Simulated scan of single mutants.
Amino acid sequence: MKLRLILSFILLTISFTVFSQEKQNVTIVEKGLIKVSVMYPYAEGKTFNMEYYELKHMPMVARFLGSNLVKYTIEKGIASGIPNQPLPFMAIGTFYIKSLSDYQAAIAPNRDAIRADFSNYTNITPVILVSEVIK
């Protein structure tokens, strides 16, 4: 019993330390930036190669965006927000950019290369949402 209590305390301390470190590394995204979310819906029989997406596809698109790109993120879906419901998205890639028109100008001549690369990591047609960061 005493050993279990000690182990629980150690795990709690480690968890608190990791959480505190993560909290300190939070990046604030500026109001007014444009956010381009590329969402890959989950469906039976659909596949997604996260390693390729992370190491090849997203860096390729980021290079096309150049100095207009503030940052990008990659998210791997792990669960629905509602218990016992299917995963809504397998992955989401997000680009934070300064200018929508500069984004469109950078993507337009590279659209075919971007789309051709899809088959290297997924058989999902993405849903794209362009939004403005409010807070």
Results as ranks from 00 to 15, higher is better:
K2L: 06
N123V: 14
N84S: 12
V26H: 04
R111T: 11
I128L: 14
V18T: 03
S131G: 15
F95T: 06
F64V: 04
S131L: 05
S20E: 07
E30W: 03
M50H: 12
I6N: 11
I14M: 03
I128Y: 11
F118W: 01
P86G: 00
K23V: 05
I114D: 13
E51H: 10
Y103A: 08
N110L: 01
G66I: 00
E51M: 05
F64W: 04
T47W: 02
L65R: 10
K98Y: 09
L5W: 15
K23C: 07
M60P: 02
N84R: 06
F89C: 04
T122P: 02
R111H: 12
L12F: 13
Q85S: 07
A62K: 04
A91N: 07
Y96C: 10
S20G: 08
I10T: 07
I6D: 13
M50F: 14
K98S: 10
A113P: 06
M39C: 08
L65M: 07
Q104A: 13
A62N: 02
S37F: 02
S80E: 02
P109V: 03
E30Q: 12
L87G: 10
Y52K: 12
Q21T: 14
V61R: 03
Q24S: 11
I78F: 01
R111K: 15
A79C: 10
K76H: 10
K2C: 05
R115T: 08
A108N: 07
Y72C: 03
P126W: 00
K98P: 06
E51Q: 14
T17C: 13
F64K: 07
M90D: 08
L7N: 11
S131Q: 06
F9P: 12
Y42R: 03
V29K: 00
L7P: 14
K135G: 15
T17L: 11
Y103N: 11
G66E: 01
Q85L: 00
M50G: 06
F19R: 10
Y53K: 00
G81M: 02
E22P: 02
S37Y: 00
H57Q: 06
P126C: 01
R111N: 15
Y103M: 10
T125V: 15
S131V: 01
E75N: 07
G81H: 00
I97M: 11
K135Y: 15
G81V: 05
I6F: 15
T27P: 12
P86V: 00
G45Q: 10
D112S: 14
F48R: 02
A91W: 09
L129K: 13
R115W: 15
S67R: 03
S8N: 14
D102E: 09
T47Q: 05
V61P: 08
E44C: 00
I78K: 05
F16P: 09
E30K: 06
F95S: 12
L5P: 12
A105G: 09
A62T: 03
P83A: 06
F64G: 04
P83E: 00
L7S: 13
T27F: 09
Y40T: 03
F19M: 10
P88R: 08
V26D: 02
Y103T: 11
F64I: 01
N68R: 08
D102V: 01
M60I: 02
A43L: 09
